[in-house]
């Protein structure tokens, strides 16, 4: 049996003493503390991952922290169908992350959006301003769970 491409990546990452796991042939993830994220990202780039597809922030209000997921992938021949996730956490108190823009330029939009939507500051990003939101939206982070939106009730016609 030939070794899967994703297993090679996981093995390489485990040598760095970070917890990496392959979920299927084409999906895998690595969990890193935020101070080592640049180091792991550089390693993944060396292994052939050449672009970031998405930067996702997820709010966990009970634990007062925000999870960040970078979906990275590659256009090279042996890795093109793999999406690898870099998962990391940052707390509300110290809502700063090192930016991965030095490693992958394509994280530009995602980091900027995560900054305005969740209030995570990416250190090293050249343009940390608001992107989609209007100018008067200062100080409020709409994708945090504490930000509630008003919803209309749903009308169901039961006469039929």
């Amino acid at each position: 049996m030939t070794q899967r491409a994703i297993d090679l990546i996981v093995t390489e990452l485990q040598k760095m003493k970070v917890s990496a796991k392959a979920e299927s042939d084409t999906r895998g993830y690595v969990e890193v503390p935020k101070d080592r994220i640049v180091e792991v990202a550089k390693k993944l780039k060396e292994l052939g991952f050449d672009h970031v597809k998405a930067v996702t922030g997820i709010d966990f209000p009970e634990q007062e922290k925000i999870q960040l997921i970078y979906h990275v992938s590659s256009y090279s021949e042996n890795l093109y169908n793999i999406i690898f996730e870099i998962k990391s956490f940052t707390s509300y108190k110290d809502c700063v992350m090192p930016s991965l823009i030095t490693v992958w330029e394509s994280s530009w939009t995602g980091e900027r959006e995560t900054h305005e939507m969740l209030g995570v500051y990416f250190e090293g990003h050249p343009d940390m301003r608001r992107l989609f939101l209007p100018e008067d939206f200062d100080g409020v982070y709409p994708l945090r769970k504490e930000f509630k939106i008003k919803l209309e009730g749903l009308f169901v016609d039961k006469s039929e």
Binding site: D50, Y75, W104, E105
Partner: peptide, 24 residues
């Protein structure tokens, strides 16, 4: 194209053979 994160027809016009319909 790869560094800036181009996708779709714009990526393929720059010489990258990639289409999700083939890749996955």
């Amino acid at each position: 194209a790869i560094a800036w994160g181009a996708v779709g027809p714009n990526l393929r016009a720059s010489g990258v053979y990639f289409d999700v319909r083939k890749a996955e």
